[in-house]
Structure formats: C-alpha cells, structure tokens
C-alpha cells in the first residue's frame, strides 16, 4: 500500500447486509483511483470479493453493536466490534481522511469520543446537510447525537455548524437559525428561550433568530441549530413527507394517464431528496471526518459518502 489518501469503511450494520457495503467499496475503488480503502468487518467475506490487495487493507472485526446493546458497555465488553476498530484505525492511520459507517449511531459516537475527540474536547454533534429551496444546503445540527442538551451545547452546535459551512461551502458568514415553534424571540420551550439570548450575543455567530419547522429548509438559514431530539424529528419528517409527496405524484400520474411526466418529476425529486444520493450525516467536532450513513444504506450511499470525503480533501464543496 502506498501513501494515498485512505477512507476507512465499516461494513457491518446495514439492513442490506455487509455485501451491499462491500459492493459500495468496490464502486469507490473503480471510480476513484486516487483513493485506498481500509475495510473493516468479516475478513473471510471481504477477501472473497477479490478486491485489489495493493489498494485495500482488511481488518477482521466481525462483531456489531445492536440497537439493544448499550454502546458504552459494548465498547468495554466486546473485543472485536467493527465500528470501534474502524474508528480506532482512522485515528491511527496518518493517511486516513475519514470513516464511513452504516452501523449503530450511538456506537459511532462512543468510538468518536474515545479515539477522535478534538483538542478542545468538544462533544460531537451529528449534522445532516439537506437541500434547501434556494438551491443551497442547510446544515441541521444536531440530529440525534445528543438527545437532551443545555443552552451552551446549542451555542457549541452553532459554532460547529458555522465552521463547517464556512469551510465546506465557502459561505463567509453563515446565517444561524434556532429551531422553534415560532419566529418571535418569546416563542419556544425553556431550552430555546434560554438559548436565544446567548446566540444573539455570541461572537462569531451570525444569528438570525428563531426558525419554524416549516421554514427549516426554506434557505433562510445556512445552519439550523436544534437539540438532538427535535433535530431528528425534522430530519425524519422531511424524509417521510418527501416520500409521501413522490408517491402521491406517481399515483396521480397513473390515475390520469400522465405517467411519463410524473415519472420525470418523481425522478427529479428522488434525486434531490434521496438519502442514498445524499450519502451521509457528518459528526462535527471530531479530529477527522466521521460520516454516518443510514441503516438502510446500500452501495450508492457508500459511494456518495466517499465522494463527500474526496470533495473535502479536494477543497470542493460537500456535494459538488
């Protein structure tokens, strides 16, 4: 193996099985000759796919963290968990630019805490980069790494999101919104009401005020800050609504004999909002890039997530 940039891929945890993730790794090798891979999981299975040994390092770690496991206990009690081994390898390998995992989000967070915390010991946040109505992208942070938060944590999220959008989208002064149930400063739960004045006076944050859920992806802000519980609801509701709308459009086309045009519309919407194409969420606050694909991800999501990492090191924007 030479000193090319390396991406670490955790193959375990996908609803579609490790084969789908290894297939995604193969797509990456075919499309991006400038990249090497470290593939973590069941060594025998990975070897059986005959990937080029001069570009692929295999790490045997066949154990997983299930949704019924406590990720912190699993970290100490299970010796060969793929996601932990993958994060550890990413931390140790100087050539590794980041890790892609489809596995348990809590386990990925624990691994990141243990091996990839930044110097400031920032508590990581899981951000989703979502297409907005102004042909740009909005960084929604947090989407589930910290379900309950305090006000100072939300301020920290605002900084993480701001830094990310400056670096990745070349936005000079990213606009930061605070997710609330009304745009007025008096609206919101205790957390939002306590956070609002802190964000308003925080240096380095271009705070535009509260943003309602219906405006989350309007493009009025570049960074939308929320506690993990609320942010996750926005993310899942957005995806659910997009799927419902596309399904209804397809039904309408079938019913009225306009299938050709509705298929084109549905295809465009699927391409814009499909999480397989969008690739992954990103763990902000880590020393290297930690990308989390959805549990139902297949090969395309792995390819898309790898493209994100390659864009980052090529100094391009996230989805360029």
């Amino acid at each position: 193996m030479d000193n090319k940039h390396t991406i670490v891929i955790d193959t375990l945890g996908s609803d579609k099985g490790p084969e789908a993730i290894i297939e995604g790794a193969k797509m990456v090798l075919d499309e991006f000759p400038e990249i090497n891979l470290t593939i973590v999981g069941d060594e025998e299975l990975i070897k059986s796919k005959n990937l080029p040994s001069n570009r692929v390092k295999i790490i045997h770690a066949p154990e997983t963290v299930t949704n019924y496991d406590n990720p912190i206990e699993a970290f100490y009690k299970k010796a060969n968990v793929s996601v932990f081994k993958a994060v550890e390898e990413c931390a140790k390998d100087e050539n590794a630019i980041g890790i892609i995992s489809v596995g348990n989000t809590g386990a990925l967070l624990v691994g990141t805490l243990r091996y990839l915390l930044d110097e400031k010991r920032t508590r990581p946040a899981l951000a989703a980069i979502l297409p907005n109505m102004q042909k740009g992208f909005t960084c929604l942070v947090d989407t589930g790494a910290s379900i309950d938060c305090g006000p100072s944590q939300l301020v920290e999220f605002a900084h993480l999101g701001t830094d990310f959008m400056k670096k990745l989208y070349k936005i000079e002064n990213p606009r930061v919104g605070l997710l609330s149930n009304g745009s007025e400063p008096t609206k919101g739960n205790h957390l939002v009401k306590e956070t609002h004045p802190l964000l308003a006076k925080e240096e380095g944050i271009n705070f535009i005020g509260n943003v309602e859920g219906s405006k989350a992806l309007s493009g009025m802000c570049d960074v939308l800050v929320a506690e993990g519980f609320a942010g996750n609801q926005v993310l899942k509701n957005t995806e659910g609504m997009a799927i419902n709308m596309i399904t209804e459009i397809m039904k309408f086309g079938k019913k009225t004999g306009n299938e050709e045009i509705t298929q084109q519309i549905a295809g465009y919407l699927m391409k814009t909002y499909d999480f397989e194409s969008l690739g992954a969420g990103i763990m902000l606050g880590a020393r290297k890039y930690v990308l989390k694909c959805r549990g139902s991800s297949g090969p395309v999501a792995i390819r898309s997530a790898s493209k994100i990492l390659i864009n980052i090191i090529s100094n391009k924007t996230f989805y360029e």
């Binding site: 406590n70 912190i72 967070l109 624990v110 805490l113 243990r114 915390l117 010991r121 508590r123 790494a145 910290s146 309950d148």
Partner: peptide, 12 residues
C-alpha cells in the same frame, strides 16, 4: 449527567 457526559467525564 447523561451517559455520554459520564463517558467524557471518565476520560477527563
């Protein structure tokens, strides 16, 4: 303290 906070505290 929450579970992630406990882990970060243990590391500190």
């Amino acid at each position: 303290m929450d579970s992630i906070g406990m882990m970060m505290l243990s590391m500190s």
